[in-house]
Design a binder for these strands. Structure first.
Lengths: 166, 166
DNA sequence: AAAGATTGACCGTTCAATCTTG
DNA sequence: CAAGATTGAACGGTCAATCTTT
């Protein structure tokens, strides 16, 4: 009898704090994203990814961004972004423009309808974040959490960049 | 001209802290889950959801759980769990048992092969969490973060439970 | 040859419908 | 008729292959 049930039990109860912390990260993100996304969909008819795209485009100098740049910002694969822009284009919220310098490239551009949608959705989204994110924990803990999460994110990104074996 | 570009700009820059906090939660979760999942897949050939199922089953008194109970624990829809157990069953890691009391019900049971897989994967997973979660921020901040996230999760769950309109 | 964008094939998940049992 | 589990259809995403341009 090599590894018995008792050994496994020991493993299951050891390091409970890390498991708990990781589980909490997953659960909190899932619960919060679920309620915030639902509310955004309900009040503005926009999936969260769409709002993200509209915000990025609207923030950028010329109100437009290269496809691959935008993909990087919203953490999508380039093919995923192609399809996302397809859907938003048929909805009339964004358009495509050819890039004059580099004829391979394409811009995604926000349309007037896209700006209208953003003007409608953004205040509601901010209010939603107030209710579900700021209010439950207060602004001090919000800042603390943000800073910790930032270190966590950066460390994770560093190790993916490092361990990459193409 | 009612709502001009300046108004939108104001909205975009107001409440940046909430947007940042929310973005960081999404980004940290995504970055960490990505690296941890990849590592788990690499070292043990197990998707994270599979490990989750194996852990839950292995923890439970009879090493088995009702399908719907398990679905609740791993935050899957019941249909999603049916298909997950399908895949794990063809991989030989779990099985199904009929419920004697209630003939509608079914149990998911962990198999000896499933326990072997768990014994192999769990230490590696714990070590991975040490490296990517505990080490980058330290145990004090880990505890702080966990506690804040727990409040956030509970608040979000409360408001979904409340706002439900069947 | 490499980079940017798109397309095709596929995979995992959910929602709605279904079947069986309580 | 309600509850537990499964099935069919659809959706949204990725990876690998492709096409055009550099």
């Amino acid at each position: 009898m090599s590894s018995s049930a008792t050994e496994l039990d020991a493993l299951l109860h050891a390091g409970g704090d890390r498991i708990t912390a990781y589980g909490m990260l997953l659960e909190a993100q899932a619960a919060l994203a679920s309620v915030v996304s639902d509310e955004l969909e309900r009040t503005s008819g926009l999936p969260h990814a769409w709002l993200e795209v509209l915000v990025r485009l609207s923030r950028s100098p010329e109100r437009r961004l290269r496809m691959s740049e935008l993909a990087g910002q919203v953490l999508f694969s380039t093919s995923g972004l192609t399809r996302l822009i397809d859907r938003m284009e048929t909805a009339g919220l964004v358009g495509r423009e050819a890039c004059p310098n580099d004829r391979r490239g394409a811009f995604a551009v926000i349309t007037p309808a896209g700006e209208d949608a953003l003007r409608h959705a953004l205040p509601r989204h901010l209010e939603s974040l107030d209710r579900h994110l700021l209010h439950p924990i207060g602004e001090d803990d919000l800042a603390v959490m943000t800073e910790i999460l930032e270190r966590l994110r950066d460390a994770a990104r560093r190790s993916t960049a490092t361990h990459e074996v193409p």
